[in-house]
C-alpha cells in the first residue's frame, strides 16, 4: 500500500492505495465521488475524464499512486465551483444529455474547450469532443451547447 496526499476538489485527502488502483476507482470507491464513471477502462470512451493539475486526463489510465501532491478536480468540484454553470444550463436547455453516463466526462472536456480554446469553431468543438463517447444523443445538442456557451462568453468578454 502506498501513502498519498493530494487535493481533490479543494480538499486535502490522505489515503493508502494499492499500486494497481487507478484514479477512477480511487475517486469512486475510496472517496465516494461517483460522478465520474468507468465506461471502458482502456482510455477510449472518456466517461472517466477528470482534471489533474489543470489538464484533463483519463481517470482509468492514471494510477492513484502517482498522484501524491496532485490537484484533482472532478465533476462534483467543477459543479460546486460554478465554473461551468452557464455550460450546464445550456446542456439542460438543449437536452444535451440523455442517459447521462457520458455527461460528467463530456462536461469536463467541454470545460477544457472553454478554458483553452475560446475561439473554437463548430468543427473544432466536434474534434475536441471526439474522445468522449455518447451513445444516446447523436452529439448535436452537445456541440450546440458548447458553441452557444462559447458565443455567450465571447459576447460578455467583448462588452
Amino acid at each position: 500500500m502506498i501513502p498519498i496526499t493530494l487535493t481533490v476538489n479543494g480538499e486535502r485527502v490522505t489515503r493508502h492505495v494499492e499500486p494497481r488502483r487507478h484514479l477512477i476507482d480511487f475517486l469512486r470507491l475510496d472517496l465516494g465521488l461517483t460522478g465520474s464513471h468507468a465506461g471502458c477502462e482502456h482510455g477510449v470512451c472518456g466517461a472517466c475524464t477528470v482534471r489533474v493539475d489543470g489538464e484533463i486526463v483519463r481517470g482509468c489510465l492514471v494510477l492513484a499512486a502517482s498522484l501524491d501532491g496532485a490537484e484533482v478536480t472532478t465533476i462534483e468540484g467543477l459543479s460546486d465551483s460554478g465554473e461551468v454553470a452557464d455550460l450546464q444550463a445550456e446542456f439542460v436547455a438543449r437536452n444535451a444529455a440523455q442517459c447521462g453516463f457520458c455527461t460528467p466526462g463530456m462536461v469536463m472536456t467541454a470545460a477544457d474547450i472553454l478554458r483553452h480554446h475560446p475561439q473554437a469553431s463548430r468543427a473544432e468543438i466536434r474534434e475536441h469532443l471526439s474522445g468522449n463517447y455518447c451513445r444516446c444523443t447523436g452529439y448535436q445538442a452537445i456541440v450546440d451547447a458548447v458553441e452557444a456557451t462559447l458565443a455567450q462568453r465571447r459576447q460578455e468578454a467583448g462588452r
Partner: peptide, 11 residues
C-alpha cells in the same frame, strides 16, 4: 438533466 450534468445521478 441537472443531476446528470452535475454528476449527481445514481447508477
Amino acid at each position: 438533466v441537472p443531476k446528470l450534468v452535475q454528476g449527481r445521478a445514481t447508477y
